[in-house]
Nucleic acid binder design. Structure first.
Lengths: 158, 158
DNA sequence: CAAAATTAATTTGCGCACAATTGAATTTCG
DNA sequence: CGAAATTCAATTGTGCGCAAATTAATTTTG
């Protein structure tokens, strides 16, 4: 097949096929994960991005909106309404930083902290559903991290 | 399956860290691709999912909405408005199948077909931005396809 | 010190994603 | 045949994701 040079001027017609494209593989895998998570998270009334925020907070409680956004790669336009929903659901509390009233500090409630134990169950269910060992998962993860870093490096100084 | 490292009662605390999770790596990579594509597709007034539909149609013109949905993994709830926007933009035409009035046949316009040549440029730009060779890309792609298949086998599809 | 620039979060608007519902056309089968 | 079930597309409602505009607080600077 087309196992040739890194920069080949003669890219074949087939390269346009969906199944041949790395980006589509990533896109599909992301949706597949979302679908796999959905039934597990529905029990807690959570969406996947909301779950990501909780993961971040379980790792490091009391973060500003901006800090959370840096952790999971979302801007405040996405996070503001999302955090409001997490607050209504009773998992987090939001409070203006008295030291800098521009910032809002997000912290876990007791209920939010309590969810952490159950999250291990979700983690293991997903691990099983993905059908790969921790080693395999780690390998793919690192490869994707590198890919993500590479992609993100190309658009700040453009 | 059974055993494996997946079934480990002593999963460490760190396993909950965002950076440790395969799903998050996939999620981030998908967003990174989206961001990389955006400036390239903006020139044509296209979004990434719209570009996927065109990729599918360049491969095989004249498909029903359902068929397109099977190709890229989207349902009619997403595709109906998306296709209407592609039609307004002049890239595709939609027409009820005279032989089966339930179906709508989507076909490329001249403008839509003409875009195919330019798409090779996008493809190469993305290839360069991803910073990996065709070989590497193919490897990751196959791994992700397998992962996606495994995740999707978890429910409906059987 | 006050004006200007910067920063943080919210809001608004558009489009994707998906579940659930609707409506019309077709197929099945009693 | 005709009623019921099925299929396909479109619609509705909720939430994510991002850009751009807004508002308020803080920092810079002139």
């Amino acid at each position: 097949m087309t196992d040739k040079a890194t920069h080949n001027d003669t890219i074949p017609e087939e390269a346009l096929a969906l199944g041949q494209q790395l980006c589509f593989a990533v896109y599909s895998a992301a949706h597949a994960f979302n679908r796999a998570y959905k039934p597990l998270l529905d029990r807690f009334g959570l969406t996947y991005p909301q779950y990501l925020v909780l993961l971040a907070l379980w790792q490091q409680d009391e973060m500003t909106v901006k800090r959370i956004g840096e952790e999971i790669g979302l801007d405040s336009g996405t996070l503001s309404p999302l955090l409001k929903r997490l607050e209504v659901a009773g998992y987090v509390a939001r409070q203006r930083d008295p030291g800098d009233e521009r910032q809002v500090i997000v912290r876990l409630t007791e209920k939010g902290r309590g969810l952490k134990r159950e999250a291990f169950g979700i983690l293991m269910d997903i691990g099983k559903a993905s059908g790969c060992s921790l080693d395999e998962a780690g390998e793919i993860r690192e490869t994707l991290h590198q890919l993500t870093r590479q992609l993100n490096s190309g658009h700040s100084a453009d």
